[in-house]
Every structure is written in structure tokens, then in C-alpha cells.
Design a protein around this nucleic acid. Structure first.
Length: 508
RNA sequence: GGCGGGGUAGCCAAGUGGUAAGGCACGGCUCUGCAAAAGCUGCAUUCGUCGGUUCGAUUCCGACCUCCGCCUCCA
């Protein structure tokens, strides 16, 4: 089955065919964070989507190289650095650390490369020199360098590939009075900005004098350095289409480094923004959420991730706390099913957060079981259709109901359970949601005629003791006592479930 | 003003020229000492409005209403 995706370049859905002649290697670049503040939930929608794309490509058998930049020099950062009176790196590294912490909470795989803009100044300068040499960039009197849209278009290049632009409204020769720089045309954009006093210590030497890079050049320089002048996928939020991505194309293709007939990027994917409670996020509306805000409300990264992955990436998504509550319930349903099947298949407790995105097989009874190909196939054809996660979840929930039915009627063998666990974990792994069951299940008492055994998964002593006491009370038909213990456990944050095989303790 | 994306049950959200997936919430039932979990079951004669094409449209076309995004700060 072939993956089809919406390529902004073509404004249509296209079959994904990697540039690699072997059809195996895939280069993927995602515009990363600008580290001047904590990232918000909207930013993470984009990064979680990128992570999904990567995981799905790996699932499809591709060898993916994922690059995500960190923008650590830029106007807003410089302004904040001045306020904070801190060295640039000290300032940006604190937000960068928080960003990666959040990314991990959301169970996003670390990109293979995380280039920092400030580490690639030399590459940017080299690229700018190439652009000047080819006549599509020019230096101004103050020592800045601009990209000339007019010259670029003059060489037969197309500016306006991702968005339709109306050049009649971008009159050449006009000046924006607020712009302190002297560029030839309004549409031109800065490749290199000459140093100004407000920049403080933030500047680098260059052939045109001290200064700092423009906003777009870093992505061109770093992506081409790490993935080559032509690569497969470039993703980012929809707002980056113009001007950021458009300018990236201009700079990268304007340098003439691609081989004939090749583009800078073959497929551009843009994720839609999200609204919070139906409105654009803003601090004054009180609907501005960082990940830590949501964690403080008692939600987990897993739940947030799941919610972000329930809607199609090209649709505006309305993020609400009510939705998050619903996400919790839905996810719980899936994990409950997985958990019961694991129990039946007698798997060892799940190991903590595993970062490898590929899952080859699940071990049970010393053998690797085969997944349910029908289910996986349904999931795959949904995802192949431009990452139609809603349809994919539909197949998952239908399958879960079917498995629950088998589970309760006793129609599922241990071996089938093992295969089903394998199947569900493969799918959950693509969503980056494979790892969370250990958060819910913690202890299980098996109550045979002869003995009581405990399958402990790190449950604290008091909860376990109460579970035993309740089990004893139930055997003695002292239900009043048993119910009192259940309430007590609830106060401690545990819910107890009586199953045909014994009691089970779960985190609330 | 230009360009683009939407409006599907209480909420979220797929989808198709042939009569509306899935999840959450809610109600009933089964199971249970009681619960929980799970299962079964009920829950949009209808897909923003009005026209048109068609044997048939939520799906195609047109107009309108409305929400949102981008138009050089922005995931």
C-alpha cells in the first residue's frame, strides 16, 4: 500500500515516492522551536504531528533521518536577552531544556539531528555568498544583505510556489517607513542583518561586517548541510508557508546547488493551528496553555498527545479541557483492553518508555507472535490516506470492542491474546502511545483455591496490604469491611476491580 | 480587499453521487455481594441556508450566511 500525502507545493494529494533510488532512505526536516519562551500546546501540535509522520514512515519500512532545528538567534530572542541581561546561550538554553523535557513528556522521539542556528553561521555566510555571486542577493550601505525577489524571478525562478501571491500589491521601489533597513523592494527579505546597538553582544563577523543572520537562512543552510541540497520532506505549521518556507525555497534553489531537475524539497507538509476553547490562544483570554499548565491540571503527556492525534493535521483543531477529559476516557478504554490481553498472554510488566520507534515482535512464551494482519491492514490504509488518524482510530476502537467481546466470552486463547497484544502495540507505537499502560495497572492478586499470589508492578506497600485485607474480608463475606477498604484505596488514589481471576489494583 | 480552510448529533470527529464511521457524555439491560471493567442496546429521516444538475446530493455546481487562518512577529 502506498502512502499518499497532501503536498502544499502541488496543493493536492500525491503518492509519496522518496528521492532515494532504492526507495528506502527518507530525509525529513521540521522547523523547530524558537527558544525565547515556553512552547505552548499549539506548537506541540506541530511537533507531535512531525513525530507521527516519522513513526509512520518507519512503520512503512523507510529509513528516516529526522532533523529539527533550534532557532537560538532572532529578533524576539535578542529583545528578551537584552531585558534579561544574560548571555545569549544562557538565555536560550534554559528554554531549550524545557522544550525537550516537554517533548519527552509527549513521548516524541528525539530527532536524529538538532542543529542550532548559532552553530551554523559559517554555513549561512557561505550560502549568502553563493547567492550574491549568482546575483540574486545584494548588500546595502549599512552592511545588510537582502535577497532580491525580482532578480530571482528574472532568472526564471518561481517565487510564490506555496502560496499565491499578488505582486501587483507588492510594488517595487516602495519603502516601509518603519523599516530601518534599505532594501530595494518591499518583498525582499534579509539574509544578513547588519549589527545595530540594540543587538548588544549578539553579532558575528562576516564579509559584509558584523551582524547576524536573517530569519529564513538558517533553515536553508542547516537542512541542506545535513540532508543534502534536495531532500524529501519539510514540515512546519501552516503559518510558516509564507514567508518563511517560500523564502527558504527561494534561497535554497536560488543558490543553484541542486542537480538539474531537482527541487530543494519534494514534499511540503503543513499542519493547521489549533484553537483553544474555540478561540485563538491568547494570554489575555486565559486560554493560553503550556504543557505544564495541563500537567498541573492532572493530565498526562500521553493524554495530551492522544488528543492532539485524534484530529486530522490539516484541519483546525479545537483544543478544550472537556475534550482532554474525553481523551482520557477513550485512551483508558484502549489501555484497559491491552492490559487485559497482556494479562491473558502472561506478559511481563511493560517496560518504561522505550524510544525505539520500530517494534519487530512481542515475546510471549519464548516465541515471537504474528500480528493480526487484517487489523494492521485496515489501520494502514486509513493512515496511507494523508494520515487520516480519525479513520485509523475508528478501526482501532472497532477492533477493541471485538477483542473485549472475545475476552469476556472466553473466546480468546493465550496465543491469540499474544498476537493481539503485538498488533495493538504496533499501532499504538505509530501513535507514540504504546508505553503508558504501566501508569494504570499496578498490582494483581490471583486468588486460586490454594494460594494467593501477587503480581506486583511497583505498587506501594500500603495499597497492597489493603488489597489483601479486602480480599480476606470478601472471602469472609464481610462486604461492609470490603467496601470500606475500597473507599480507603480510592482516597489513596487507587481503584480496585474484581475480575474472574482475582482483584486488580489500578491508578485512578 | 487578495488568497486559503471550515460549518456533520450535547461535545469531539471521519466519510461517500445511492441513502450518515468512531470516541466522549447521557439512558436502559446483562454480568457483579455491591461496584468497577466489559458486553448488548437506545441516542442526526439528517450533514450552515437557498437554489440548480441528477432517477437520486450531505457528497457536484451557483449564490448567500457564518466562523477561522495567512497577506512579510508567529507551530
Amino acid at each position: 500500500m502506498a502512502l499518499k500525502l497532501f503536498n502544499t507545493l502541488a496543493r493536492s494529494v500525491q503518492e509519496f515516492v522518496p528521492l532515494d533510488s532504492a526507495g528506502k532512505k527518507v530525509g525529513m526536516y521540521c522547523c523547530g522551536p524558537t527558544v525565547y519562551d515556553l512552547a505552548h500546546i499549539g506548537n506541540f501540535r506541530t511537533f507531535v504531528f512531525a513525530d507521527l509522520v516519522r513513526r509512520y514512515l518507519v512503520f512503512k519500512g523507510y529509513d528516516v533521518r529526522h532533523v529539527m532545528n533550534v532557532t537560538d538567534v532572532e529578533d524576539k530572542i535578542i529583545a528578551r536577552v537584552r531585558e534579561a541581561k544574560m548571555p545569549l546561550r544562557d538565555f536560550t538554553s534554559q528554554y531549550e531544556a524545557e522544550f525537550f523535557k516537554d517533548l519527552q513528556t509527549l513521548n516524541c522521539l528525539l530527532p536524529h539531528d538538532v542543529p542550532h542556528a548559532t552553530d551554523y553561521i559559517a554555513e549561512m555566510i557561505a550560502l549568502i555568498e553563493k547567492l550574491i555571486a549568482r546575483g540574486v542577493a545584494y548588500k546595502t550601505a549599512d552592511g545588510s544583505v537582502y535577497f532580491s525577489i525580482e532578480k530571482y524571478r528574472g532568472c526564471g525562478c518561481h517565487y510564490g510556489q506555496l502560496v499565491k501571491l499578488n505582486f501587483d500589491e507588492m510594488r517595487v521601489g516602495e519603502r516601509v517607513s518603519s523599516d530601518e533597513y534599505a532594501k530595494e523592494s518591499l518583498a525582499d527579505f534579509a539574509l544578513w542583518k547588519a549589527r545595530v546597538p540594540e543587538d548588544g553582544d549578539v553579532f558575528w563577523p562576516s564579509p559584509w561586517g558584523a551582524g547576524r543572520p536573517g530569519w529564513h537562512i538558517e533553515c536553508s543552510a542547516m537542512s541542506m548541510k545535513l540532508l543534502g541540497p534536495s531532500f524529501d520532506l519539510h514540515l512546519g505549521g501552516e503559518d510558516l508557508m509564507f514567508p518563511h518556507h517560500e523564502d527558504e525555497i527561494a534561497q535554497s534553489e536560488g543558490a543553484g546547488v541542486q542537480t538539474a531537475g531537482q527541487r530543494f524539497v519534494k514534499y511540503w507538509l503543513h499542519g493547521a493551528h489549533l484553537l483553544v476553547e474555540g478561540k485563538k490562544m491568547s494570554k489575555s483570554l486565559g486560554n493560553f496553555f503550556t504543557l505544564r499548565d495541563l500537567l498541573a491540571k492532572g493530565f498526562t503527556g500521553t493524554e495530551v498527545r492522544y488528543l492532539l492525534l485524534t484530529a486530522h493535521y490539516r484541519e483546525t483543531f479545537n483544543f478544550t479541557l472537556e475534550g482532554l477529559q474525553g481523551a482520557r476516557a477513550g485512551l483508558k478504554r484502549i489501555y484497559q483492553c491491552l492490559d487485559s490481553m497482556r494479562q491473558l498472554a502472561q506478559f511481563a510488566p511493560m517496560q518504561k518508555l522505550e524510544l525505539a520507534p520500530d517494534i519487530v515482535g512481542v515475546q510471549a512464551f519464548g516465541v515471537t507472535t504474528e500480528p493480526d494482519r487484517t487489523f494492521i491492514g485496515r489501520f494502514e490504509s486509513a493512515m496511507d490516506n494523508d494520515f487520516n488518524v480519525s479513520a485509523a482510530w475508528g478501526t482501532v476502537f472497532e477492533w477493541v470492542r471485538e477483542k473485549n467481546r472475545d475476552l469476556s466470552s472466553g473466546a480468546m486463547s493465550e496465543k491469540e491474546a499474544s498476537s493481539n497484544v503485538h498488533s495493538l502495540e504496533m499501532v499504538l507505537n505509530v501513535f507514540g502511545l504504546r508505553t503508558a499502560t504501566f501508569e494504570t495497572t499496578s498490582a494483581f492478586i490471583k486468588t486460586d483455591e490454594a494460594s494467593i499470589t501477587l503480581d506486583d508492578q511497583g505498587t506501594p506497600e500500603p495499597a497492597m496490604r489493603l488489597m489483601f485485607e479486602r480480599e480476606a474480608a470478601r472471602k469472609a463475606k464481610d462486604f461492609k469491611r470490603a467496601d470500606a477498604i475500597r473507599d480507603e484505596l480510592k482516597r489513596l488514589g487507587w481503584v480496585i476491580e474484581d475480575t474472574p481471576n482475582g482483584a486488580r489494583l489500578k491508578r485512578l
